[in-house]
Design a protein around this nucleic acid. Structure first.
Lengths: 145, 145
DNA sequence: TTAATATCCTACTAAATAAGTAGGATTTAT
DNA sequence: ATAAATCCTACTTATTTAGTAGGATATTAA
C-alpha cells in the first residue's frame, strides 16, 4: 500500500498539471477540490518543492507550479520522494538498497522473485507520467521505458 | 515493502517444503537456520496453521508440516495472510477492497495505473509456488496463471 | 503603508502498525 | 513421570502514519 501522503501528492500534482500554463495553483484550491486536509497538504507540497518537483511563490497571488513538463515527471519519482523504496524487499531496492542482515543474500530463495516484481512494477511506474494520468489512462502493452 | 513477519513466513515455509515428506519440522530448527527470533516465529507458524497452510503436532516429536503440496501453495496466499492487501490502493485490492472515501472512484485518475501494477504483480506472486522457490527461480515470460 | 493573502517553519499529538518478549499452560512420546 | 514440543495471552517498545496548532515571513494591491 502507498501512504495517504503519497496518494495526496499524486492527486495534487495531477491537479496542478491540469491547471498548468496559466498561473500558480493554491494549496487551498487543491485541498477543497481533492478533499485533502489543508495543513497536511501544505507540508506535502513543500516537500515536493524541496525535491525540485514544484516551485512556489509566497504571499498574495502565490501558489505552486510544476518545475518541469508534466510529460517528464514520472510517477515513480513522486512515490520515491513520498514513501521511499518501491521494492518489496530492502535488498532488492534500486534506490534504497539495504542488506537484510539476517539472511545470506547470495542464497536467498525469495530475492529473484521480488526482483521480478520490482521490474514489472517499475516498467509501469517508470513510464507513466503526470501527463499520461491526465489523459484517459491506457495500459501500455510494451512500455517505452 | 513486505513486513519482516511476512518475510519470515516465506523463509520458514520454504524451509519446511524442503524438509517435507519425512516428518514435521521444529520451530527451533527453522529459527536457528534462518536467523528468526524463536518466539516470534512461533506466532507466525501458528497463524499459518490457523489459516490452513500448516498443520502442527504438539509435544515431543512435534512440529509443523505443510497441509498441501508445495506446488500448490502460491506466494500471494502467504502474503495476504501475513500482510493483507497486495495492491497499492485500497480501492484496487481484489481481496481487501475498501473505498478511498475522500475521492470519487469513478473519476479517479490514478486507479487505472494501480490496477495495472496490481495485475502484473499478481501474475508473478500468483503463479510462483513454494516449490518454485526451492528450485532455481527463473522469471517466467508468460506466467501460467 | 497597511491589510489581506499566501507560503514557510517548528513542534506537537494521537492512533496504528511492526517487531518482538515474557511467562507459563497444555499436549505427547518415551 | 519427564522431557520436549506447541499453544496462548498479555505486554512492551519503537516506528510510522496522519495529521493539528500556532504563528513567522513574504508578496500584492488598495
Amino acid at each position: 500500500m502507498i501512504s495517504k501522503k503519497c496518494k495526496y501528492a499524486l492527486k495534487a500534482l495531477i491537479y496542478i498539471s491540469k491547471n498548468n500554463g496559466d498561473e500558480t495553483v493554491l494549496t487551498s484550491s487543491i485541498a477543497r477540490d481533492e478533499n485533502i486536509p489543508r495543513k497536511f497538504l501544505e507540508s506535502i507540497l513543500r516537500n515536493l518543492r524541496n525535491n525540485k518537483i514544484l516551485h512556489s511563490k509566497r504571499g498574495k497571488k502565490g501558489g505552486f507550479a510544476l518545475l518541469r513538463d508534466p510529460k517528464e515527471i514520472y510517477i515513480v519519482e513522486i512515490m520515491r520522494i513520498m514513501d521511499g523504496p518501491v521494492a518489496m524487499l530492502p535488498c532488492v531496492s534500486l534506490n534504497y538498497y539495504k542488506s537484510c542482515e539476517e539472511c545470506d543474500e547470495k542464497n536467498c530463495k525469495i530475492k529473484g522473485m521480488f526482483e521480478n516484481v520490482r521490474d514489472k512494477t517499475l516498467e509501469i511506474l517508470g513510464s507513466t507520467s503526470l501527463h499520461d494520468l491526465n489523459q484517459q489512462y491506457n495500459q501500455k502493452e510494451a512500455p517505452l521505458v
